[in-house]
Design a protein around this nucleic acid. Structure first.
Lengths: 250, 250
DNA sequence: GAAGATGGTAAGTAAGCACTTACTTTCAAG
DNA sequence: CTTGAAAGTAAGTGCTTACTTACCATCTTC
């Protein structure tokens, strides 16, 4: 779509719906396949569908990708290497928060980044879950590359903060699982189970903030009374489905 | 073409796998199909496989269930109506805790019941996720019948406790999502992503207790100091990588 | 001990699948 | 213009799939 011819400097005529350069077509087929696999899974998608969606014959698909499996693997590379492997832990806002030892910001920014990533790339979530269920290697790969890494990262941060006495001596693994659970479940709920937000309709910003708040201080009023933290913003936001005007953190 | 006259005094090998009563076979096929669908999904499982696993011919499968779809629907009824629809909210321990307004017990017991249910019926989790991804109606049905119900139930309990001032004025929907998220994500992690418990290896009891603790009081030490609640039991239980020598409770 | 219902099978069939083959069209460079 | 390589296709091929047909075997019952 956006790619210009690499081999020459022709002022390319507008798309005539036909003949594309090799690389371009390859990418287009890949894109189309990603969205189909994400929607219907690997087994649920036929090569014929892919070809049709790309506007070419099936043979064209097999010219670019020897087998369906190989097409799948190309998707892995495309997703996992290029965009998918989000370097959350190294996002500026997060590293910043870590340097400042601002626990609230660490979790809120990390949660927000995750939520935004999931919302923006719903396809990836679908792909991932299908892969996990079908026992494909993408699942394993993603787990090793991203999840494990993030767990280790967060765990060691938490351990440090525990040594400093800032955080209770709970198993850091449990804390990570709890927080990641809130976030992931929220994303999966929104994109898979409850697309119409019947159960809960809040913005990513509110979600990240509230989950962080719960993680850090819980919901019990009896422990320390109505705390006067940054908790000021907390309120019964319930089912209101529009009022979530938010600031950009960037 | 013709078989042996079966006049019967042959030392016939005791082929035990033989003739079952109709209902019995039906149930057996259903059981076998459940486990296969859970492992490989609806599309990923062939009727031939089901027949083989049940030790009968394919035709037998189609005698009991007119189509593959119908077999699937029979599974829904079997699971959703009979065992699946766990009446968590009405489990004795939970109703008990509610009557006593013991928030800790409410969440801990509910979480524990969920975790145990998932662990005991892993197949159901797999079935559910496959259904959700394949857009099957089981997903919708389950959502309406169980999840929505549980959300409403918990939400109203929380709202009451908020009116009584026992719980902070956070949107109850957010609280429910946070807690359910921890639990579900833990179950899904254990049964789908990390079967070897590389990331976190804790018992259901510990998980329910710790998640509840986090939900109620958070992990921050600064709010109220090292609280002397029932928090006494909290400790570094987790993924001790090489030794449990790092015991620094402040 | 025949009748009839019921449990069970072998051997199909048509449609759908991943993948091929043999061929045509386009187009830029020599 | 020629050429030849790359973009593209129509029409297969053989295998798998959900589902059928036509037939056997074994029990029960009077």
């Amino acid at each position: 779509m956006s790619k210009q011819p690499v081999t020459s400097n022709l002022p390319l005529p507008p798309i005539v719906a036909s003949r594309m350069a090799g690389e371009e077509r390859r990418l287009q087929i890949l894109q189309v396949a990603i969205s189909l696999f994400a929607k219907k899974g690997f087994r649920g998608t036929t090569t014929k569908e892919i070809a049709q969606a790309a506007g070419v014959s099936e043979a064209m698909v097999f010219r670019h990708f020897a087998t369906k499996e190989e097409l799948y693997k190309a998707i892995l590379d495309h997703k996992a290497c290029a965009s998918g492997s989000l370097d959350l832990c190294h996002a500026e806002t997060v590293t910043d928060a870590i340097a400042r030892k601002d626990d609230r910001a660490v979790f809120e920014q990390l949660g927000l980044a995750l939520l935004r990533h999931h919302e923006h790339d719903t396809e990836f979530l679908g792909l991932l879950m299908h892969s996990a269920l079908e026992g494909h290697e993408l699942a394993q790969m993603f787990w090793e590359r991203n999840v494990l890494q993030m767990y280790d990262f967060l765990r060691s941060y938490l351990a440090e903060r525990q040594r400093e006495g800032a955080i209770l001596a709970v198993d850091p693994g449990v804390i990570v699982r709890a927080f990641v659970g809130m976030i992931i479940h929220h994303s999966v709920s929104n994109s898979l189970w409850d697309r119409q937000r019947r159960l809960l309709d809040i913005s990513n910003e509110v979600a990240a903030r509230e989950f962080t708040e719960i993680l850090l201080h819980g919901i019990c009023a009896t422990t320390a009374g109505p705390r006067a933290h940054a908790t000021a913003t907390r309120r019964q936001s319930g089912v209101q489905r529009d009022a979530a005007k938010k600031k950009q953190t960037k």
